[in-house]
Each structure stands twice: as C-alpha cells, then as structure tokens.
C-alpha cells in the first residue's frame, strides 16, 4: 500500500497550473515556512469569473497535489462557487488524503479564500454573504 492515492501522485508529479500570473488581480498566501507549508494562489478574475489561476507551493507531496487539484476545481468557475470549495471536496477529489495530511487540503481552501479576499479588497467589493466554513 502506498502512502498516497494515484490521484495525489499524479497531481504531485504533474502539477496543473504551476507558476504565477503577472496580471493577477487576487493573490492569497497562507501557511509559513517554519511549519513546512506555504501556498500562494494567483487569480485572474473577469466579470466575477475566475478566468485563470496559478499556484506556487512550498510543501510536501500532498500540499502540492492539493494546490494543483484546487486550482483545477476553480478554474473557469464563478467567484461565489469557488468560495464554496471545501477542503473535504479537495481531499475527496484526490481520492482521499492520509489523516495527518488533511491540513494540506485545508491550506488549499484557505489560500483560495485569501486570494478572493484580496480581489474583493482591490476591487472595493465586500462579499454579499458571509462565508460559512464546511
């Protein structure tokens, strides 16, 4: 039995949407290097749609895979749908994470929220409904 699912290994080995966006209008960074995990999400939002997304991650295999999967799940989606993405959904999409790695999916969820917060701040918007965490 392997530590990670094939999905996790696929996203870790071939991460989707790696890099940065020079014209991002929402950037979120969570975690800290002391604890061994940093995730940075770049969003390009047009008409409340996430038209492009990139990530940079310093962290373990599941942190990289969670970032990759999360960016895939929100690309092309309306902002309010992206805000509904939960860490459970990310972990499920990866066919599960080991219990001690679930925080990696939480980090991905938080990074997306932080990037959208940043977009809202920049564009002078405040979210209409408060976000309820799953």
């Amino acid at each position: 039995m392997a530590l990670y699912s094939e999905k996790v290994m696929d996203h870790f080995t071939h991460p989707r949407n790696v890099g940065s966006l020079p014209d991002a209008n929402g950037i979120g960074e969570v975690g800290n290097a002391r604890c061994g995990d940093i995730m940075k999400i770049y969003l390009k939002i047009e008409n409340d749609i996430i038209v492009d997304v990139k990530f940079e991650t310093f962290g373990c295999g599941s942190a990289i895979a969670s970032s990759s999967m999360a960016t895939e799940m929100i690309k092309g989606k309306p902002v309010d749908q992206a805000l509904e993405l939960t860490n459970q959904a990310i972990a499920e999409a990866l066919d599960g994470l080991p219990a001690h790695k679930l925080h990696c999916s939480v980090l991905a969820e938080e990074a997306i929220r932080a990037a959208i917060d940043d977009y809202n701040k920049r564009s002078g918007k405040t979210p209409e409904t408060p976000v309820i965490k799953g």
Partner: peptide
C-alpha cells in the same frame, strides 16, 4: 524550487 514561493 521551480514551484516554491519561498525559493522565488
């Protein structure tokens, strides 16, 4: 390093 925000 290529995907690490720390390295960047």
């Amino acid at each position: 390093r290529g995907m690490s925000p720390v390295w960047k």
